[in-house]
Amino acid sequence: DLSGKLIIKAQLGEDIRRIPIHNEDITYDELVLMMQRVFRGKLLSNDEVTIKYKDEDGDLITIFDSSDLSFAIQCSRILKLTLFVNG
């Protein structure tokens, strides 16, 4: 049953990962930690990372904090994230 699940599709460069999320109350910090685990070796804990999501118009919107993240989650059951490393 995928109805209650949130799917995160995260892209870093050419690498795209699909991550099912069971807890929608994820904070921004938890998201960043999850991305560091998912992209281990490509995304380091001291990297400056910018996370953006695609909205319904196809625009890339920056996620700065947990309220941005929860808004993005409300918009779509499949959250398409693009990561930019400013390392």
Rank of each mutant, 00 (worst) to 15 (best):
A72V: 07
N46D: 08
I78V: 07
R77M: 04
I19N: 00
I26N: 01
S45V: 10
S76V: 06
K80P: 15
G41I: 05
I61N: 14
V38M: 09
V85E: 06
P20Y: 07
Q74S: 07
T50A: 15
R17K: 15
G41E: 12
E56F: 05
G13I: 01
L12G: 01
A10P: 00
T50I: 05
L83P: 01
I19G: 00
T82F: 12
D59F: 14
S70F: 06
N86T: 10
S76N: 12
V85Q: 07
T82H: 09
F84N: 08
S70V: 05
S67R: 13
D59M: 15
E24G: 10
G41P: 08
I26H: 01
L12W: 04
S76L: 04
H22M: 10
M35V: 12
I73S: 02
R77P: 11
N86V: 06
F39S: 01
I8L: 05
E14A: 14
Q74Y: 07
F39N: 01
R40Y: 11
F39V: 02
V32F: 07
I61S: 11
M34K: 08
L60D: 10
I61R: 15
L79F: 04
A10K: 00
D47Y: 03
D68M: 14
R37W: 04
D29Y: 05
D57H: 15
S76M: 05
L69Q: 00
R77C: 06
H22Y: 10
V32T: 07
I26L: 09
F64T: 07
T27K: 09
V32A: 06
L83Q: 01
M34S: 13
I78E: 15
H22V: 13
R17I: 12
D65R: 03
E24K: 12
D65A: 03
L31V: 03
S45Y: 08
A72F: 14
E14P: 08
F39R: 01
I26R: 00
R18K: 13
G58I: 00
T27P: 02
T82R: 13
R40N: 13
A10H: 01
I63T: 00
M35C: 07
I61P: 02
D15I: 14
Y53N: 00
M34H: 07
C75M: 15
D68W: 02
S76I: 04
L43V: 07
I8A: 03
V38I: 10
F84T: 13
